[in-house]
Design a binder for these strands. Structure first.
Lengths: 204, 204
DNA sequence: CCGGTAGTTTACTAAATAGTCAACTATCGG
DNA sequence: CCGATAGTTGACTATTTAGTAAACTACCGG
């Protein structure tokens, strides 16, 4: 059925990287097209605007992300370890990215969300959706840990909000400082927020 | 000594508000000039660029902020209460701003820092300086509280980092969600991070 | 192998934006 | 009240940017 293309995918990859390395406001459609090796005409063939492309890119990444989350939050893994694994994988990702781009980049959703939330409600809602989903995974692990008597957390959703506020806060600090140093305190910080009793975690 | 003017101050006020309401990348020099009631020629008479103006604006606000901090962190106030007061004043500010602008705006430095840190090192450094200063105030209170046996926090700087990561994280969540709701959990969250023993705080 | 469809390209317009400059004006000190 | 100084103005240029349109091309199904 006509000509085939992966230009759409290349555009999504390009905007993700550009936003992450720089910012949403400072990346132009021309830049996105250059990086994707796509002409502007094609850009507008697929997407109506930068905002629309960004939403599509987040959606696409979220699909892949879901598989990762399901692996990390496998019921086979003890609940508190799931949360620790989530943090570890997040930190490991920061290390890779620093390697690749020479910069600590933090959480793209949090950074982007805080940049554009007052200006682009469509994007804001999509970001909120993805962030919410992460919190729900965390809340479920918290609930389970509480039920198992590993921690005291009657309000699992509130605990999940607190954990993500802290975690995203540290990632953003790391981005601003351009330093991986602060990330090292995360496991300790997360456990202390969880109020984990010593040895409620299987030693890894 | 020639003609007098407060255009400089008006420009600084204008960029602050525009960045806060929107973002750094999306505010143009023309917009800043309009809001300040200043012609572009005058803008360039005072400042070499948007970045330079932003640095000046942060610097100026920081001067005023120092007085507030000194009041909040008065040695007359018990150390843990200083931290609680800092949080309360921060939250109260969010309520005012929501009133005024119809939006929750979060912390301008954190939002701006995470937006521009990879692109403008001068701005980044200035933001880092101000954020660091806040952390030092907090660390001093933590140190004192630890010395007084109110909390267990041998590494005051680390505790201060953790508190700010959490606090800024919640403020950013509030901005993204455009909701004051999440802020209500802050006092509780901060106290739990501090590991405050019950009644180590004088009841207000 | 051909026709329609999906995707590409180039060249274009209009608007927004950064930045410059020389002429102008108000104000302070003397 | 005058002259130097500090600040203002508007009109300008050059670029960058978003967005459009019409001709072109590759590919799949029949």
């Amino acid at each position: 059925m006509g000509r085939t293309s992966d230009a759409k995918e290349r555009l999504m990859a390009a905007i993700s990287e550009l936003i992450w390395i720089g910012s949403y406001g400072s990346t132009t459609i021309d830049q996105i097209c250059d990086k994707a090796g796509v002409k502007k005409g094609s850009f507008y063939y697929f997407f109506g605007s930068k905002s629309e492309l960004a939403v599509a890119a987040i959606e696409a990444e979220f699909c892949a992300r879901r598989a990762e989350l399901d692996a990390i939050f496998s019921p086979m893994v003890p609940p508190l370890e799931r949360i620790i694994r989530l943090c570890d994988s997040g930190c490991a990702r920061q290390v890779e990215l620093k390697e690749k781009f020479g910069q600590v980049l933090g959480c793209p959703l949090f950074t982007l969300g805080s940049e554009i939330c007052t200006q682009d409600n469509g994007l804001r809602e999509k970001i909120q959706e993805v962030l919410d989903c992460h919190q729900r995974y965390i809340a479920s692990a918290v609930r389970e840990a509480h039920a198992a008597g590993l921690i005291e957390a009657p309000d699992a959703a509130a605990k999940a909000r607190m954990l993500t506020a802290y975690f995203e806060g540290v990632l953003t600090q790391a981005r601003i400082l351009n330093s991986l140093e602060v990330l090292k305190e995360i496991p300790e910080g997360v456990l202390s927020i969880l109020g984990a009793k010593r040895q409620s975690l299987v030693p890894s």
